[in-house]
Write a protein that binds this DNA or RNA. Structure first.
Lengths: 211, 211
DNA sequence: CTAGTATTGTGACATTTTTCACAAGTCGTG
DNA sequence: CACGACTTGTGAAAAATGTCACAATACTAG
C-alpha cells in the first residue's frame, strides 16, 4: 500500500463501486478492467493502476469477481460500517440532504438535525426532532457523531465548524461558500455549487473542446 | 493564451474572484499575489502562474488592482453576462437550488422550472410557474436557455439530458448519480454528494494526514 | 538621482498523475 | 499437453500540474 492515495483515485473507486453494484444487479459474475473503465468513465489501465494501489484483486485472463471486488472496495472506502452524521442547518439544502436516499443507502445515518431558528426547533423531520444548535457539542458526544454536514450561512459556518471539531467530529462537509479552517487531523470536503456553475460558464464561453 | 486551461486553474480563479469581492468590500485598492493566495487557499506562485495564463494584470512592486482584476476575472470566467438556466426537477434539491441566493448573485437566472409530477405542475415558486417537463425543448428554445440543471431521478436523467442537448443546451449540471453521456460540444458538470461523503469516509478510515 | 524595499512574470525544476506496453498468468478446446 | 484468446499487474515513458528562484520593474524616501 502506498503512502498516499490521490483524491482522484478515491473518486474513481467510488465510481467503480457504483458500476459494480449495477453489474451485480445484472447478474454479471466477473468484469474486466475494460468494462469497468467504460462504466466508470475512464481507461482500463487507469482502473488497474487504481486497484493495484491496494492489492491484486483480479485474475489474469479472467477479470475481477464482481461480488468480491465490491466488498473489497467497500472496505477500502470505509463503507463497511455505519457513519453517524449530524446535519447542521435545517434550511432547504439541509432538507434536501436529509431526504437524500443515497446517503442512507451508503451507510450515512443522519442521527441528528440542528438549527438555530426557534421556529424550527422541535419540529419533526420523519422521526427526528430538530434540536437547537446550541446543543451541537452535546449531540456530537452523546450520539457518537463522526461526520458533520454544515448547511448554514457563511457568517456562522466557521464558528459551528470549530465547535464541531472541538466536540470530536472527524470530517466536515461544508456547503458554505467560505474556506473553512480546520486542524490537520480533521478532513474537510467543500461543496460549492456556484463554483461548478462558473466552471461551466468558463467552458462555454471559451467554447473549447469539452472536458 | 494557452491551448488548454486546467480545471484546477479555473476553480482557483473562482476563489480569487470571491476573495477580490471581499477585498473590495473592505476597501482595499490593490492586493499582492501573496494576500490573494492566503485567501484563496493556495500559494503566491500559483496565483501568478494562474493569472499569467491569461495575460499580465499586475504591476511589479505593487500588486494587482482589486477592481480591475475583479472585472478581468469575471470576463475570463464568462460572468460578465446573464446566464439563462432551466431547472429540471422541482423536488427538494431543485427547490434548494432555486432559492440559492448565490446563483442569482453571479448572474445565473433560473428562468424556468419543470417537473413531471402533475401535482406540482402549475404551482408557483415565487413568480415562476412550474411547467410540465414535456415542454422542456419548447422552454429551452423559447427562453434561450444556456444551462440546464438536472435534479431528477437517475432513471430519467439520461433521456432528459438528451432532450435538453437536442434543444440547444450548452451546459448541463447533473445531480443524478449516473454518468451522463453528452456530445463533445456540450459541457457537463457532475455533482455527486455521496461521492464526497465517500471520500471523507476513506480519508477518516485511513486516518492519513489531511489533504 | 540613488538606494532600498516590494512584487510581478516566467523559465527551469520537481512532483504527481496518466498512459503505454508487455511479461506473466488463466481458461477452454482439441 | 499445446495453442490461442484474453486479461491482469507493473515498470517505464509521457503529460500535466505545481514549486522555486530570480531578473525585471515600480514605488518611496532621502
Amino acid at each position: 500500500m502506498p503512502k498516499r492515495v490521490s483524491d482522484s483515485t478515491i473518486r474513481r473507486l467510488s465510481h467503480y463501486l457504483r458500476a459494480l453494484e449495477d453489474l451485480e444487479g445484472e447478474g454479471t459474475g466477473t468484469v474486466s478492467s475494460n468494462d469497468l473503465a467504460a462504466r466508470g468513465g475512464t481507461t482500463a489501465a487507469q482502473v488497474r493502476k487504481d486497484l493495484s494501489q491496494f492489492g491484486s484483486f483480479g485474475k489474469r485472463g479472467l477479470g475481477y469477481a464482481v461480488c468480491e471486488l465490491m466488498s473489497t472496495l467497500r472496505s477500502i472506502l470505509g463503507l463497511d460500517r455505519k457513519w453517524r452524521v449530524a446535519l447542521v442547518g435545517a434550511g432547504r439544502i439541509g432538507s434536501a440532504l436529509f431526504e437524500y436516499p443515497n446517503f442512507a443507502e451508503r451507510g450515512f445515518d443522519c442521527v441528528v438535525v440542528l438549527d438555530s431558528d426557534p421556529a424550527k426547533i422541535g419540529r419533526m423531520w420523519g422521526d427526528t426532532a430538530i434540536r437547537s444548535s446550541v446543543e451541537l457539542e452535546e449531540a456530537i458526544r452523546e450520539l457518537g457523531v463522526d461526520l458533520v454536514i454544515l448547511a448554514v450561512p457563511q457568517s456562522v459556518a466557521q464558528s459551528l465548524c470549530d465547535r464541531a471539531v472541538a466536540a470530536g467530529a472527524k470530517g466536515i462537509m461544508n456547503f458554505a461558500t467560505i474556506q473553512l479552517r480546520v486542524p490537520k487531523r480533521v478532513h474537510l470536503s467543500n461543496v460549492n455549487l456556484v463554483l461548478e456553475m462558473e466552471a461551466l460558464s468558463f467552458a462555454i464561453t471559451r467554447a473549447g473542446p469539452r472536458e
